[in-house]
Design a binder for these strands. Structure first.
Lengths: 225, 225
DNA sequence: CGTAACCTTGAATAAAGTCAACATGGGTGG
DNA sequence: CCACCCATGTTGACTTTATTCAAGGTTACG
């Protein structure tokens, strides 16, 4: 019971559910189930049937495409408050990505049927859902742009500039391995490029901490060459 | 008047609008406007505000990301019956892609407000819309997979195998230039790879016509190496 | 029949990947 | 609390892959 209340509060301030009224929110909260996944554990694998959507309550998730030879291409990260797995829910196709916990993670899972019910009850929920998918699409197109139209160094620069930063300080939220895959690079190449940007005085790297020293210089690299 | 009737019939058998009842369909048809675009003409540019969605009635459209140095990365093609431009409509962001006619094209344009109205009136329309976006997302993820996890030759092979074919015969629907960009290759590389697949006996190329000769062999290239 | 757009081919180059060795360092168990 | 160890990250030498640049060939179409 106490748990149910927590869930309701949690859902209440997610963008996706923000437009729901009290009654609807209670329904959603009741429909939610807690799912716990240990670090490195899988929420689902490629090929699994998609039966609902997940919301991250605590922890972090990465979505990735696995490849035959053990590599993987990281598609997206999700942190608390974000939903994933919604896209495939609306198709009758299995997941083509896998979802893996980057740390010990607590998720909420909501069944497809309950989502459909909410859509039918409340058009503005449908709009939120549509906006959510659109945002995802937008992000993917940006990724495609990055991988296809920018060289390795530019990709690293735009990644760094896109990260939220406080006082010109940025922190890699995960293994550089994982970041490299997101950028479509090998870990070796990422390492070398960071070193190179460091040498040129654009950034100062210290482990996962990066100080951005020369934003205009970096931006010049993005457009100039 | 006659035109309006045509529009209604056209809309009636699009997946997106198939669930609408007669009344709704009439409303949609009334909300639609014809847009004509000559070959190579632009429907919209990157940076334009998104104010509605387009449906291809006749012709063909390509969506692409333009880059600074005059290149572009082709994202998707649309043929009669398909809708595009819906994704960004739900965000308040400008287009990040441009839409260009591959041939003389007739489009229908439906204003955002009319789409929203339809969503509010009919939850099953909302579902169609969601399914449409999901499908788009799915396709993009597949593209990301192709570009990141397959080498140039594998990309060409999977493109060929994915194309609809009759009696092992496939035809490039557009300039090889455009296909190359979709695959994330230069035209030169595409040309060389087709030649190579030809030499190896996997395919027989004659201009835009390709005969697929050895499907198992090609599939082996996809997984084997 | 001529011209422009499209496509192919070759040689040289550059960019990033691979493989392998080594460094670092955070966490755990002794 | 220290030492060891495994996961993570770095560096170097070499290789591969696809691009670039340039020239020439083809094709479709006015």
């Amino acid at each position: 019971m106490a748990i149910k209340l927590d869930i309701e509060a949690l859902l209440a301030h997610l963008p996706l559910f923000r437009s729901l009224d009290k009654t609807q929110l209670v329904l959603m909260a009741q429909a939610s189930q807690e799912v716990r996944v240990a670090k490195h554990g899988f929420v689902f694998h490629r090929g699994d049937a998609a039966s609902g959507l997940y919301v991250v309550a605590v922890g972090g998730i990465k979505l990735a495409i696995p490849s035959a030879n053990g590599q993987e291409k990281v598609i997206e990260f999700f942190s608390p408050g974000q939903a994933f797995g919604e896209a495939v829910m609306f198709l009758d196709k299995p997941y083509m990505v896998q979802a893996q916990a980057l740390e010990d993670t607590l998720l909420l899972w909501i069944d497809k049927q309950d989502i459909y019910a909410a859509i039918d009850r409340d058009p503005s929920f449908a709009r939120r859902m549509l906006a959510g998918l659109s945002l995802r699409l937008h992000a993917l197109v940006q990724d495609i742009e990055t991988v296809n139209l920018q060289n390795a160094s530019q990709r690293v620069i735009s990644y760094l500039l896109k990260q939220p930063r406080e006082a010109e300080h940025v922190q890699f939220p995960f293994n550089k391995n994982v970041i490299a895959s997101k950028l479509g690079l090998t870990p070796e190449t990422l390492s070398r490029l960071l070193h190179q940007l460091n040498s040129k005085g654009y950034i100062a790297v210290d482990g996962r901490d990066v100080h951005i020293l020369d934003v205009p210089g970096m931006e010049a690299q993005l457009y100039g060459r």
